[in-house]
């Protein structure tokens, strides 16, 4: 059974005594190593939700668990150090250099100089900021995208298992945002982090999240895979949120891994292939340009995960309940293969 990195049980929160709940009776489980996005308009309580998790706010009622432990029973500062926190305004310390910013938590944990140094270099390389160039710069000398990269490096410094990200790319231009989205996906997979990512952008929510929480008025409207949200909206509100997406748009935000089927082992040698992280639009593109009967889905290293046949693909819009969708996450498919 999957371990839950974070679990909320009947959590409510209000600011003043007489005001109404900003978060209303929310119960949710975030499994370890999953990428969950929280989608909602402003005032939906999505930011409050993640601030409750790192205890910037205290829940008025209900309980929150971090790997099974009630967070109220943990030392709040120690607990927060196990969670990386990235916000939209980057929150970098303007009087510290990039290096000093990233080294804040390692220094506090009393790592020795050498270990801190190599960790800083490693992280800056990971977020594609060559240490030699950027280490000694101040945040004011960086672009918005670079600042967010430092923000991510800083959040990862002490190797936390969980990252909370509050609209981290909301203030960036489209191109930078896309680059950073791809990079955070890669970081999440490579280091097996649990990420809870708040956004108001439908595309971003579905592109990044294995599962998405849709919030409105402090309540969870639906917590499901992008596929199910797009094709089985739980209520009128969710339907409205995703209805603006036409079919092609829906394909654009769904990943190939969401409908991949186990391969039966007999594949055409010239069958086209896509990456598990590519979208269904890429899959469609392959079908339309190659005339193949099936498109293979591979992982990053080129290993075969499964395939999508044209028949299966055609079932997507019309019969969402059909056998085609199995709620397959990458791991589940891998499991089938190995079993």
């Amino acid at each position: 059974m999957a371990v839950n990195a974070i679990e909320l049980k009947n959590v409510s929160m209000r600011f003043g005594k007489d005001s109404k709940d900003v978060v209303k009776n929310v119960s949710i489980k975030i499994p370890e190593n999953s990428f969950v996005t929280v989608l909602g308009t402003s005032g939906s309580g999505k930011t409050t939700l993640i601030k409750l998790i790192n205890r910037l706010y205290e829940a008025t009622s209900g309980e929150i668990f971090f790997f099974g432990k009630n967070i109220r029973e943990l030392n709040v500062e120690n607990y927060r150090r196990q969670i990386g926190y990235v916000i939209q305004q980057s929150g970098l310390f303007p009087h510290m250099t990039v290096e000093q910013n990233v080294a804040v938590i390692p220094k506090m944990l009393k790592w020795d100089e050498k270990r801190t140094q190599s960790r800083v270099d490693e992280l800056l390389k990971l977020v594609r900021l060559p240490p030699a160039v950027f280490k000694n710069r101040f945040p004011s000398q960086l672009s918005g995208g670079q600042q967010q990269r430092v923000g991510i490096a800083r959040a990862l410094a002490a190797n936390p298992s969980v990252l909370l990200m509050d609209e981290p790319f909301g203030a960036l231009d489209a191109i930078t945002r896309q680059k950073l989205q791809a990079e955070i996906l890669e970081i999440q997979k490579r280091f097996r982090k649990t990420i809870l990512f708040v956004t108001h952008d439908v595309h971003e929510a579905f592109k990044l999240g294995e599962r998405t929480v849709i919030m409105k008025g402090g309540e969870i409207q639906q917590y499901d895979t992008p596929y199910n949200i797009l094709f089985h909206p739980a209520n009128e509100f969710v339907r409205r949120i995703v209805s603006s997406e036409n079919f092609v748009e829906k394909l654009r935000v769904l990943r190939a891994s969401s409908i991949v089927h186990p391969s039966d082992g007999i594949e055409a040698p010239d069958a086209p292939s896509v990456n598990a992280g590519d979208t269904l639009l890429d899959v469609l593109d392959q079908f339309l340009t190659t005339n193949a009967a099936a498109v293979l889905v591979t992982d990053k290293q080129g290993g075969l995960l499964g395939r999508i046949t044209w028949e299966q693909f055609r079932l997507i819009p019309g019969r969402p309940d059909s056998e085609i969708y199995r709620g397959a996450t990458l791991r589940a498919v891998k499991g089938v293969r190995q079993g």
């Binding site: 927060r80 916000i87 305004q89 980057s90 970098l92």
Partner: peptide, 18 residues
Amino acid sequence: IDPGVLESAVGMGLSKKT
């Protein structure tokens, strides 16, 4: 002081003194 700076300082687990 930029509230975002303070928010992330608290959020990352720095003590009040620090």
